[in-house]
Write a protein that binds this DNA or RNA. Structure first.
Lengths: 342, 342
DNA sequence: TAGATTTGTTTAAACGTTTGAATCGGGGCG
DNA sequence: CGCCCCGATTCAAACGTTTAAACAAATCTA
């Protein structure tokens, strides 16, 4: 590394002041065109690198936006992130990504780091059990927060997520309309707003159809393929002999179908399965998975826009915004064959 | 936001100088124990937030490390990233993640941004066609680079990846030992070091076994499930009637198996398939996928360590480090049944 | 008891930008 | 010809830390 090139290096080389150089590089109309061109040329020639830390120390806008979700490896979040990335790229913001794995501590550590770096804002899918104070920590220090996928009690910042109750009701009704009556719900937890809503949607649909709502039909668990795969054993051994499963998400559903296939049954034929999210791989699973599109791209795009708006002074988007899910019917659900049985 | 709390706020409240406060907060032995305690207490009481930009302006260590890969949604990279994250977390470094989607421009933009932010170092899986100058841009400006998964010609920085030629040879030999002779290679490209190595491993194994190496047996393509799924059509229509496939990676293999199943054949029985990487989902695919473990976690861990070492002045790890892959035999490969045919 | 040491704290100069206010050399106006 | 204004540039202070060097007071040493 030869030598740090800074504004003053350019200034000296050209017999100008750093002020002029600074202004020129940012295309200020205050500096003469010919001067600006000379400066820019010199900057390139010398390999000048803009020092954002020094600048942001003065301006207090860092151009950094933080994004923290449960797990970026999870395709559900990955799809949201991709939408956020696309949207933020346009406005030349750098984004810092992190997992919290539902650890409130890890999440708080991230928020603190972001504050230290002077982050302009944060988009988060809050960890289970996130206290309102952690969101306020960000907001109170001038770093606006946007929530995605989950809500936090007592917090009114812009929040974007799918309408989970509506979505699971869609899936449940679809199965009911195919003649199924013993419908299990696989995966997920009751410790998040999402969890409670999804269960409520399923339960209400069952009740409304006059079907029994047996607690044994609920098999909670992590939201992974592995977990769905393992749940197959419990599901198939269930004394109520369910013929269909509403799964927490596509990962669980695909895992469950793999488990069912491993046990020698044919998913989609012997057992109907619905997913949730409509991930890319839902369409190429075997059988192709019937699922509920949960608007990941919308969530990501809206969240990013809301943040950018907020940074520009608007606070239009406060409060909860629900995205309406839609049914995607494929081959993993088929009419109940009363003759077949199990 | 009440008012920015800074070192001087604390100093004034306590009748001390900012120097003492600064030292105390960083546990310097220079300040008296009792003073330090008073200072720390006050800092918490006032809700002080350390300003890293100001600090790093002075110290020129930002605590930021950049990581850029092709696509963080790809589970192969995701597993590497997880290992890097685990390793870096220990040393309190913040990491900034980005995709380059094999765009050299996007990758360069990332490097430039990182330089502007004062990044301490960068770990990258270089985009196809990355010029040596882009790596030097980082290095010449005092930001050490580590390469993973792919090499860049003329560049000698620490590079960690699996031994691809060895790995595909393992897979190919495994199929040969099961009696297969018409073995296709599905997916991937010849535009990366990885691509050339993987093909070389396959080709050498075939030659060494005295088997014909027909170009028609090579079906290149993107490295996704979707691509594998689509390749099934070509594969099954191939006039050479291959009975086995060495796939570029697990995603392609799983996609291919889905495609084979969709066509009414039974993967693992009618057609033997091997993957590459040993992703988590390889084990729960149906049938469970025979694959080659590619040491993602090792690559990530070694890369992170090498970077941290370099930041501490050592340059031990320069040059290429190959991780030896291992075979993971499961149910997607079975002995050729000469009677069955297709 | 004077000088040397130790301990704890402060002073002040950086780090590389940005920006409101000041400067400067003309040119136009009355 | 004096005044004002204009465009282009510079001055200098500020942003919030860190740190070498200086300082002050207390403690030790001879």
């Amino acid at each position: 590394m030869a030598q740090k090139i800074k504004l003053s290096t350019i200034a000296e080389a050209l017999g100008l002041s750093t002020a002029t150089v600074s202004l020129a590089l940012r295309d200020s109309p205050l500096v003469a065109d010919v001067t600006r061109d000379r400066i820019k040329e010199k900057a390139i020639e010398l390999g000048y690198i803009y020092n954002r830390r020094a600048a942001s120390l003065r301006t207090s806008r860092s151009g950094i936006i933080g994004v923290v979700v449960h797990d970026i490896m999870n395709p559900f979040y990955a799809e949201i992130l991709k939408a956020i990335e696309t949207e933020l790229d346009r406005s030349r913001q750098t984004f810092i990504l992190s997992n919290h794995y539902d650890s409130v501590e890890k999440q708080r550590h991230f928020i603190e780091t972001l504050l230290q770096l002077g982050g302009d804002g944060v988009i988060m899918s809050p960890a289970i059990g996130t206290p309102a104070s952690d969101i306020r920590l960000a907001e109170d220090n001038g770093m606006p927060a946007i929530l995605i996928a989950r809500s936090v009690p007592e917090i009114d910042v812009p929040t974007f997520r799918g309408d989970d109750a509506y979505g699971t009701a869609l899936a449940t009704n679809h199965l009911i309309s195919l003649g199924h009556t013993r419908i299990a719900m696989i995966g997920g937890t009751d410790h998040t707003s999402t969890g409670r809503d999804r269960y409520a949607g399923y339960a209400n649909a069952m009740k409304k159809a006059g079907l029994p709502l047996d607690p044994a039909l609920r098999i909670p668990g992590p939201r992974t393929k592995q977990s769905g795969f393992e749940a197959a054993v419990n599901f198939l051994a269930n004394p109520l002999k369910p013929t269909a499963a509403v799964c927490w998400n596509d990962l669980v559903a695909i895992g469950l179908m793999n488990g069912i296939a491993r046990a020698g049954l044919v998913p989609g034929k012997d057992i109907s399965v619905t997913g949730y999210d409509d991930l890319e791989e839902a369409a190429i699973a075997t059988p192709a998975l019937t699922t509920v599109w949960n608007g990941q791209s919308e969530v990501g795009r809206f969240a990013a826009r809301a943040l950018l708006d907020k940074l520009n002074g608007s606070s239009e988007a406060d409060g909860l915004h629900l995205i309406k899910p839609e049914m995607r019917i494929r081959q993993s659900t088929t009419p109940l064959n009363p003759g077949a049985g199990r």
